[in-house]
Design a protein around this nucleic acid. Structure first.
Lengths: 143, 143
DNA sequence: ATTAATTCCTATTGACATACTATGAATTGG
DNA sequence: CCAATTCATAGTATGTCAATAGGAATTAAT
């Protein structure tokens, strides 16, 4: 029942971009340094985000990545589902899954409730929420 | 973000015992047949439930297993945590976990919310709820 | 006392996923 | 031209999953 590093790093990566959302491209090397994550591994992760047009890449020297949308427009769910695949706790509550036991199966009730509960959380937190939380937290120690 | 067969089978196994809770021991072979699960695999799973005293075993011919408590007293969370280990979506929201980034880490907010949401579900469904649901469902077609 | 049915215990296996590392090509600003 | 960057693909070590396998121990029924 774990979220892998892929999803976790993707979220930190996107949050990092949201916090450095100046219009200038942010290099992966910088993100990797700030987040203390292997840059080579981050390359693979951002490649997925890039192909899905969640970020735009600028190649060459001084290149990097920028968000394609406003932080408000990314939910945590979008990012996790893209990088992790489905967040469903079991295959049988995923879209168009078919199981012969389905009609008999009582435990599927539990999986559906877990699924709904998780979706409710991840689909209502945006990158902007996390960015604001982090910025506010940073401000707490100013005075 | 998946629950493994171990936890899923454990829940079906326990529900099967709740539905056949006559006081007579139920053999694993029968459970395996009803649930269409490998009996050899179920042996390993029930061994965990047995060591935790969630079930009591009766050895020898005509032996089997019985629940040690009333179905009302088992939550889905108890059964899943025992067989799956922690249900936390990431290690850092588990009890007494320590991570240097903890104080900086904004994404942990997300994991905590997921964790709470899942716990809220699994800790409020009991075996009796599932048993009643299944019995009621079976009755629907009587007339 | 024997047999058959059962639980109990431990080891092994094949497939797959995870979390990277490695290598090098392509692109581009300075 | 060069250094910094993204892009693409391959490899790898480790671990987990989902069983399967084999047999020992126990006990009710005959």
């Amino acid at each position: 029942m774990k979220i892998s590093t892929k999803g976790r790093y993707a979220l930190r990566l996107m949050l990092d971009l949201a916090l450095n959302n100046t219009g200038e491209p942010v290099s992966l090397k910088d993100i990797a340094k700030r987040q203390e994550i292997s840059d080579k591994y981050l390359e693979q992760i951002i490649s997925v985000l890039n192909k899905a047009k969640y970020v735009q890449s600028i190649r060459g020297a001084q290149g990097g990545y920028v968000l394609t949308k406003k932080p408000e427009e990314y939910t945590v769910g979008m990012i996790l589902r893209l990088t992790e695949g489905s967040l469903a706790p079991v295959a049988c509550v995923e879209e168009d899954y078919n199981c012969e036991r389905m009609s008999d199966c009582t435990t599927v009730l539990v999986w559906k409730k877990i699924n709904d509960a998780v979706n409710e959380v991840v689909d209502h937190i945006t990158l902007a929420d996390l960015r604001d939380y982090e910025m506010q937290k940073a401000g707490e120690y100013v005075i």
